[in-house]
Amino acid sequence: MHPSATTATPVTATAPDALPQVPHDIAPLLLVPLLALLMLPLVGSLPIWITLTVAGLAMGMMIFIMASGLTLIFGLMGVLNFGHGAFVSVGAFTATLVFLPLRGWLEVDSLLLNLGVLGLAILLAMLVTGILGWAFERVIIQPVYGQHLKQILITTGGMIVAEQLINVIWGAEQIPLPLPASFRGAFLLGDAAIEKYRLIAVIVGLTVFAVMFLVLNRTKIGLLIRAGVENREMVEALGYRIRRLFVLVFAAGSALAGLGGVMWGLYKETLTAAMGGETMVMIFIVIIIGGLGSVGGCFIGSLLMALVVNYAGFLAPKLALVSNILLMITVLLWRPAGLYPVAQH
């Protein structure tokens, strides 16, 4: 029967019968808990282990927020954006436009008020970095699609220009960014001290991951992004204008970097124009560990790297300097394309 001969109705669930098991690759998922458990006897003290683990998870979440946009940008667009760190710095400095005038509210020990100011700062930072990302893609990136060497040169140049512009606008001095009153201090869990801000960072990181997971898996635009990361050409052959998707992903990735910049700035409590550039090594390492284009891989890679840095910093401080590189080498020896590779370029 010709299909168009009858009335079309939307497809509902089509229950498969005797479906074989879908093989799940869970080995990378086990790395984070395994690493944490393995470190417990080496650290030797449960309270210290809890403190180190929570600190590592919080740091990992912030790195994930900064890196997640870049992994999509590289995975989907094949763009090596060495200027991604500029959006981290711009985001953090933009937040001062909210934090500094509302300094009085930050000193009030009210979680609601402090969260409100933080939310406002994050919104402004994401808006500004999102718009800048859109302009950056249009002006800087578009002429160099497919030309990796030029991308490295021009985006690195873009970051230098952005840093100098920050110095022009906000001055070359460091800007102190004290934590809001209710974010300071720590909860005591037995003898373990868990800093309040680190818990907030974990919550924000998990929220970002959950939103990205939902968007990528439950929306058509998310499916298009995932499909585009695998095969841009075929997405175009299906009739979708992938360049529009590029702009959207680039702006969203830049906005996420801006959000990460706000969180990272509060974590460091000091802002410098170079802070974004300084995070780029970590960002690239977690993207490579996670597998290019994989948000899930980036999430696991971020947590792994931050935990390794924290444990190494306690157990062998000299090793901490190279621990992230050693981690990357180890992962790549195991899985040369990263934990969950999806991009095919």
Binding site: T14, L223, R226, V235, G239
Partner: peptide, 28 residues
């Protein structure tokens, strides 16, 4: 050039630019 990370349903859903997939055509 199938999208290997996507399910069969998602592969076909992306190809249906008009929106929902036509169940009659799918059965065909």
């Amino acid at each position: 050039a199938i999208f290997s990370a996507l399910t069969v349903k998602e592969n076909l859903y992306l190809a249906a630019r008009e929106g929902e997939m036509d169940s009659v055509r799918l059965e065909w």
